[in-house]
Design a protein around this nucleic acid. Structure first.
Ligand SMILES: [Mn+2]
Ligand SMILES: [Mn+2]
Ligand SMILES: [Zn+2]
Ligand SMILES: [Zn+2]
Lengths: 144, 144
DNA sequence: GCCTTAACTGAAAAGGTTTTTCAATACGAG
DNA sequence: CTCGTATTGAAAAACCTTTTCAGTTAAGGC
C-alpha cells in the first residue's frame, strides 16, 4: 500500500467512515489512474481490485470523498464528470482534446483577476473553476 | 422585435437555416433570461411564446446555435448545463451560489498564465473555461 | 398568392446517467 | 466473538439526452 493510500485511508477513519473493500478498490483505482475517470470507469478499474464493486457504491463513495475534499470533480465538456484525486492545495487541469491525457497545474495566478472581478461585480468571490483544453505533446506529434 | 433578435435571426438565415416559430420562441426566451437556462427551462420559458414548443427542438436548436457560436454553454456544478446567449468576444461568468444570478465578465486576463502553462506542459492550448462562484450583492445583504 | 420540396417539428422510444429504495452483509467497537 | 450500525449491490425509479419517424412548415420559384 502506498503512502498516498494510507493518507486517504486516514481521512476515512478520521471522519468516522468505514474503510470497506469496495472503498479501498475505488481508492486504488483512482490512485493508479493517469487521468480523471468517470464513475463507470472507476467501477470498471475498481473491479480489478474488488470484483463485485457496484456502480451505486462508486457514486456514494465519490460523494463522500467530495465532502472530505479528497477528490476533485473535473467537468468534462460532454456533460458527464470525471473524478481525480485531489492534491493538496489548489490546482487546475489541462486536458488533451484528443487522448484526454491530463496534466495538473499547481499554483493559480488568478488572484488579481478575481480581485478585480469582485470589485467590478460586487460579488463576494467564493471559488472558481478553471479548465484548460489543449493538445498534448504526443498528439501534436501524431498529427504530422 | 429587438435589434438583438434581428441579429440572431440574421445568423440563422445566413447559415441557411429556417427561422421557424419554435426557434423564434427559443431566441425570445434566451433574450429575456436573466441567467443561463437549462434545456428544460428554455422549453418552459419558450412556451410563453410558442405553446407547443417541444424539448427535443430545444436540444436541436441549441446544438445549431452552438455551431453558429451564438450561444454559450455554462457548465453548472450539478452536471446539467445551462445556456446563455453568447456576447461577441470571449467572456466568463460569475454565478451566485445562492440565487444563481449571473454576471458576465468581459475580457480575459489569462493570456500570460496560459502562455506559461503551455511552456510548462508542452500542450498546445486550444481553449479554456473559467467559471467563478460567489455571492451576489443582494444575497450578501440578506445574510445579515 | 400558390406550389413544391427539403428542412423542421413533436411524440414516442431508446439510450444513458444518477438517485432512491430495500433486504442482506461486512465492518469495527466493545 | 458478538452486536449494532454503516454500508453494500440489485432493482426500480427518476432524470437527461439522442434517435427515429410520420406529419408539418417555412422559404424560394413560379
Ligand atoms: Mn459539466
Ligand atoms: Mn478567459
Ligand atoms: Zn493527447
Ligand atoms: Zn445571489
Amino acid at each position: 500500500m502506498s503512502e498516498r493510500f494510507d493518507t486517504l485511508a486516514q481521512h476515512f477513519r478520521e471522519n468516522g467512515h468505514k474503510l470497506t473493500q469496495p472503498r479501498q478498490a475505488i481508492l486504488h483505482a483512482l490512485l493508479v489512474a493517469p487521468k480523471p475517470l468517470s464513475p463507470a470507469e472507476i467501477q470498471e478499474q475498481g473491479q480489478v481490485f474488488y470484483a463485485d464493486l457496484g456502480l451505486v457504491t462508486v457514486y456514494r463513495t465519490l460523494e463522500l470523498m467530495e465532502e472530505m475534499g479528497v477528490v476533485r470533480t473535473v467537468h468534462l465538456a460532454d456533460g458527464c464528470h470525471g473524478y481525480a484525486l485531489a492534491t493538496p492545495g489548489h490546482t487546475h487541469h489541462v486536458v488533451c482534446e484528443r487522448c484526454h491525457a491530463v496534466v495538473e497545474i499547481f499554483g493559480c495566478e488568478l488572484g488579481e483577476f478575481l480581485q478585480s472581478v469582485a470589485e467590478r461585480t460586487g460579488y463576494q468571490i467564493t471559488g472558481h473553476w478553471l479548465e484548460i483544453a489543449g493538445i498534448c505533446a504526443n498528439c501534436q506529434q501524431m498529427e504530422k
